[in-house]
Amino acid sequence: MRFGKIDYLNLLPFEVFIRSYPKPSQFWLFYNKKKSYPARLNKEFLFGRIDAGFVSSITALRARYEKFKPANVGIIAKKRVISVICLSKENGEDYQSATSNALLKVLRLQGRVLIGDRALLEVLKQQTRGRRDYIDMGEKWVQKEHLPFVFGRLCVRKNRAFYTKMIHAFSKRRVKIPQYILQKAESQSGVCKKEILKYLQVLSYKIDNKANFGVERFYRKLRIFRIKPPKRF
């Protein structure tokens, strides 16, 4: 029951859901220890240090070789994403995300990748100054491919029966985030409650047929550009 979760605001609805979902005590104990950024969780998952978790969607390309199952739940941008951006006046990858670094190359963009809550704060800061010196990479993908982009994906290696039920329940449930959790998220991230809720509205979590086509299109582009997914070694 070793579960890893991306420790960003984009999974706040899952955080609320899992608090009330019936689960073994060992799941909850481990869950609170294994929260990190996507690239770190990729390694944890591929090395077998976690049995399931939200990882970069590019990692799911290793499913056939590593013998795990990508689920139909992930972090999906159907129009824009806000929290994955390219700063066009700078250069460099973001060590926290393998998928977003690959997407930069697929989109043929030049600049520095910034993801997660840091990217969201940068976007909000620029908005207050009336600037937009960045490219929303989710939005750019949708403009080019007319398909959603899946940034993270829940993958499962062990205890599949438990996770299959959990995934089904999460994909069906409409989650309302309590004020006390929003308050805590605000104090930890520096993003105000109102902006957190606005941000979460642009995301979805069930990988439907259209989102799945988006995943397959991305994987095809990776093969064309010869971009390799993360490996253990």
Rank of each mutant, 00 (worst) to 15 (best):
I224V: 15
I135C: 06
G138I: 01
L197K: 11
L197S: 12
A185R: 01
R80N: 08
A98Q: 00
P148Y: 11
R19K: 15
R80L: 10
K228H: 13
N42I: 04
V156N: 02
A185L: 03
A52Y: 04
Q201E: 15
I18N: 08
A71P: 03
V123Q: 03
V113I: 13
R217L: 14
D117M: 04
K105A: 11
F225D: 14
F47P: 02
I75Y: 00
G190P: 05
S204D: 14
S20T: 12
Y8H: 09
R160N: 11
Q126T: 06
Q96P: 00
F151L: 07
G190R: 03
R49P: 07
G53T: 02
K194P: 04
N209C: 10
R112V: 05
R232F: 11
R174E: 15
K78N: 09
V84Q: 00
N159Y: 13
L87R: 11
L114D: 04
F54T: 01
R2F: 10
T164G: 09
Y21V: 09
I224S: 13
G116D: 04
K79M: 08
Y199P: 03
S57Y: 03
F54K: 01
F17W: 10
S88H: 13
V215R: 02
D117H: 02
E44N: 06
K193M: 11
K35F: 07
W141R: 06
D133H: 07
S171T: 14
S20P: 04
I82T: 06
F54E: 03
Y37A: 04
E90S: 13
